[in-house]
Design a binder for these strands. Structure first.
Ligand SMILES: [Mn+2]
Ligand SMILES: [Mn+2]
Ligand SMILES: [Zn+2]
Ligand SMILES: [Zn+2]
Lengths: 138, 138
DNA sequence: AAATTACATTAGAAGCTTTCTAAATTATTG
DNA sequence: CAATAATTTAGAAAGCTTCTAATGTAATTT
């Protein structure tokens, strides 16, 4: 089911993505891909790394998150409050955003049907369609 | 067509929203609602105000944008880069986001058909559904 | 396996947008 | 006009992200 859980698998994934499998990247990838699909902030991942006794700087966490995103291993989502979330689920899907908690939750692609879309203007092309269902407990 | 363009109309709108029509709010509202639907950042609106010889502090621009948003006169959109945009179009519609330029453009509500949505989890209710069509020039 | 080269990590500073603070000003009410 | 409540403001502070340039590590070459 889950990909890239073992040490060797993680190293493979990094190499395939053109990233040197450094101690820090291996540890971060290991944490990211443990425990299902996640929506991680840099701060959270950094905290988890330190707790797991992997001393890594916040700068490296940011570097790694962006490199993983550029290589399609993560997807970046910015909702609110100037904080980025990095989604370990890079397949086609959408999101609930809990306004009270500031938390994201996946919506499976098949639960949202976008039946019509305008065509991309000018010489642009659609790179992604994000559907964010904002919910609150009032 | 456009609402709240004249001085008296703007004052009325502010009063109806429960906001004292101060020199600064009147000027900001006047700028915001001139020239059709807009997606404004605080910085841009502040710049326009200064250019129009309305000395107003950036703090007041932020205060006003948030007050207008809380009263339904604006809608806040956060896409990327930790910068908020305030949309003068508060009717039901969606957005193109030009990834190259960092610019938003309206999509009329009828051009996007969301034919199915999951129900809101737990005791939450849907407060808004945002569809963002990200486009890029290659 | 040492040397070389290219790439990665780091601490701390800096950047940028947004919010806060508390003092001064202005609008409204009586 | 006086009293009161709301608003504005400069500047500081906060919060997240990026940059810098020095140091460290992985990969490649000899
Ligand atoms: Mn980013
Ligand atoms: Mn805001
Ligand atoms: Zn997700
Ligand atoms: Zn809009």
């Amino acid at each position: 089911m889950k990909n890239g859980r073992t040490y060797a698998e993680i190293i493979d994934r990094l190499r395939q993505a053109g990233l040197r499998p450094t101690r820090q990247r291996i540890a971060l990838a290991g944490l990211m891909y443990s425990g299902g699909d996640r929506h991680l902030s840099a701060e959270i991942l950094h905290g988890e790394a330190l707790r797991a006794r992997v001393p890594v700087s916040l700068a490296t966490v940011y570097n790694s998150l962006h490199q993983f995103t550029a290589r399609g291993l993560l997807r970046e989502i910015v909702i609110d409050g100037g904080r980025s979330y990095f989604d370990t689920n890079v397949s086609d899907h959408h999101h609930f955003y809990f306004e009270n908690e500031g938390r994201l939750e996946d919506i499976p692609a098949e639960d949202v049907v976008v039946a019509a879309l305008p065509k991309a203007p000018g010489r642009t092309r659609i790179s992604r369609v994000d559907v964010i269902v904002r919910v609150r407990e009032d």
